[in-house]
Design a binder for these strands. Structure first.
Lengths: 138, 138
DNA sequence: TCAATTAAAGATAAATAGAGTCTTTAATAT
DNA sequence: ATATTAAAGACTCTATTTATCTTTAATTGA
């Protein structure tokens, strides 16, 4: 039981796009090279992120991907849901309402999701930038 | 990304064994019938639980499975780890120490695990019994 | 001791999901 | 128009999950 590689790549990709936000869209070539992935494979992931409305894509010569303007508050959970779908980790095998086991599992999962909803990608970007500045100033 | 069916079956099986703890071991036939599983399949799951020390098995005529005497405090996490293994939901695809993304994911996961460690199967058993009594008294 | 019972172990197979490639199509800028 | 770039679809490969069947080992009780 693990999050898929795609979720991993998606999170890194989102952070990368946010970090070099000079307004210019970033192409899949660059994003793929950074993570040593094939462009065609990563493009599948990017399409999912696009359909979820987390990023915007423009085809053509100066095209690529950039963060949706409205969403400066994209959470970890947003990215996870975009890739994994909005599913639950646990569903009771015996279908009856009010399964006590399911209740416990569901509550623990909900709390984790809540926490991942409160964590924003922008925080990671800021921390990464501070870290970098810190190294440079030494 | 979901917990395996085996984890689901294991949790229900554990609760079932605990509920009819007249001291007698419960056979795989009964446990399998309850969940409409084949005995051979469920026995694989039971072997895992046995190897983890959560239950004890005795072969032979009056044999079967019963809860390990020492462990009246078996948690949800114990059962999950027994079946799924002691793995992490998320591991950074780019191997470097102190990955900021991994830190966030790991912390959320750890909190969920902590919660599942605090939830005991015995609580479910008690709630199920209260529920049953409640229905009977109406 | 012998027979019935029950768990454990191993080999195998089918189904599903994950990971990834290749090719074609559509949209955009110059 | 042409070069560039994303989107979509078909396809392959691999690993995991979900089982089933058969054989072996251990235990009880007659």
């Amino acid at each position: 039981m693990k999050y898929s590689n795609a979720t991993n790549y998606a999170l890194h990709t989102m952070v990368h796009i946010m970090r070099q936000s000079n307004g210019e869209p970033v192409g899949v070539q660059e994003l793929a090279a950074m993570q040593k992935l094939s462009p065609t494979y990563l493009s599948k992931i990017l399409t999912k992120l696009t359909k979820s409305g987390l990023i915007e894509s423009t085809p053509g010569v100066k095209g690529g991907y950039k963060i949706s303007r409205k969403q400066k508050e994209i959470s970890f959970l947003d990215v996870i849901k975009s890739i994994e779908g909005d599913t639950n980790l646990f569903e009771c095998s015996i279908h009856h309402e009010g399964c006590l086991i399911e209740n416990v599992m569901r509550q623990a999962e909900d709390n984790m999701k809540q926490e991942l909803e409160n964590k924003l990608l922008i925080d990671i970007v800021r921390m990464a930038e501070e870290k970098q500045t810190g190294i440079q100033s030494q």
